[in-house]
Design a binder for these strands. Sequence first.
DNA 1: TGTTTTGTTGAGCAGTCGTTCAACAAAGGG
DNA 2: CCCTTTGTTGAACGACTGCTCAACAAAACA
Lengths: 197, 197
Amino acid sequence: MGRRPTWNEPELLRSVMAVFRRKGFAHTSVRDLEEATGLHPGSLYKAYGNKEGLFTAALAAYNEQVAARRVRTHLDETEPPLRGLHTFFVSTFDSGEEANPGCLLTNTAVEAPALAGVGRDGVAAGLELIEAGFRRLLERAVTAGDLAASTPTDQRAAELLAFYQGVLVLVRFGTPPARLAGIVAHALPALLTQEAH
Amino acid sequence: MGRRPTWNEPELLRSVMAVFRRKGFAHTSVRDLEEATGLHPGSLYKAYGNKEGLFTAALAAYNEQVAARRVRTHLDETEPPLRGLHTFFVSTFDSGEEANPGCLLTNTAVEAPALAGVGRDGVAAGLELIEAGFRRLLERAVTAGDLAASTPTDQRAAELLAFYQGVLVLVRFGTPPARLAGIVAHALPALLTQEAH
DNA sequence: TGTTTTGTTGAGCAGTCGTTCAACAAAGGG
DNA sequence: CCCTTTGTTGAACGACTGCTCAACAAAACA
């Protein structure tokens, strides 16, 4: 058949993902990606076609690995459900003290409209992944009796997604974790206990 | 003294602002700005030093004109206060049906960390402008008896700012206005009626 | 009316961008 | 072993980037 790649795809995409997450699509040059991956442009272009292809692959990897994993850990596997919801939010800003790059989905949702829809589908898929996680968690909470069924789950999940995006904007901008913790700790119960009006 | 500028600054900054808002800092070329303003590069650089200076000026103009004006109209001059809060949020997505460029502050908050703090101060000032508007409105609502004083105003204002940023991410990504209206209509009362837990 | 001052012009610079490709290296099939 | 297939290399390309500046134009002074 011929020679096989000298690199490992998941690992490569993890490096690429990290650069895009920190610098965004526009500010990331192919030279940056060469440095991050240790590969030369010919190899990258042979495997992914162009910079946009590499970004699309990295975004898909972000969804399947980073986002889906966090949804599973906090929204699906933490008890009680409402505690998992809280740790899901807190996990976005309680990491080390260096500059937090925020969420690749949020960053791309803001940047994508500037270019011709680069990554639009990936962002839509990622947001739906998270929103679906919210819906499953809310159903569990209602079943467990921790949450009144006064408001439809779909409605609550949509509100949580919006609030989540807002928190991630502040995370990326550099808002101190202590301040974010205060916001999340109070707003989360508030968003859940309201009856329709 | 010598010749005077042939252009009018507020109008020029309005054009520049529109381009940056739609395309972001990185995706906007100096040629784009020439086209938008009708000026040639020499004039732009004489007046603003470089692309970053032009961006800083446009962001300041956005704060002083667009943001401050909306804060005044909805948060300070609409009665009853809680109705003003609602229209403040709705006004971000009820405009025409073309692609909504979102908020220059939100977009810049996400893009800024990628470059060396371009516009960081302007974003911080703009966010504070909005948060202060929330605080004044909440105080008015408490005084009018429309809102229980169970939660400190500062706390509520910070939560509203976070939620506001999230709505603007979804606005920019292209979420349908009807969906955003549903989110805002229910989440806003929810964020305000919660007692501390 | 000179003279000075300041805004305007636009061709063009040096650098970076995303991308290509001919030459080469390594692996499997025969 | 040779041959085919496929991955790797990195110099180099044209396009575009932010930006400069010498020449020019017009307004305010004297």
